[in-house]
Amino acid sequence: MTATGDNGPKPKKWTKRILWILAVLVLAVGVAVLYINLAFPKVRCQAVDHLKSPDQLGDCFQCHLKATPKVAQDWYESKHGVMLVKCFVCHGQPDGKGSVPYAVSPDVNTTCRKCHDPSIKKMEYKYGLKPVCTDCHPFHNNSLHHKAYVKPVAKKTVQ
């Protein structure tokens, strides 16, 4: 390596390399952005935008078996599934035009209380106010067959 205080050739080589690296980065990012925004349009529509497929709106279960299989299967095998407490009873309709407000995580007071009010009141008397039932009680996979459900087993012990 020639040692020299000369600033001529070294900076030019570095600039070129930096420029190349930047160019590759920009290209990579550009491709990534394009990929994310344009690839798999059908799946993206289904996942992201309920509203674009209005005729599927009613049959939540059939579509969610493919879109969110674990939740759908959990629900089907759970008490709510056997008792036909269908998705829209708690979650409403994704286009917001239902009588139940659309909610990914429904509000306990307007949803769970419709059927579970006596139990919620009991919880409140015994343990005081608890923020969210679902902290302890499984809502999608409260199993009919699980031995533990004979006496509901909370995920956390309530003091």
Binding site: L57, G58, F88
Partner: peptide, 8 residues
Amino acid sequence: VPELRKSF
């Protein structure tokens, strides 16, 4: 009921 109508 919109939910029931849409459901079935």
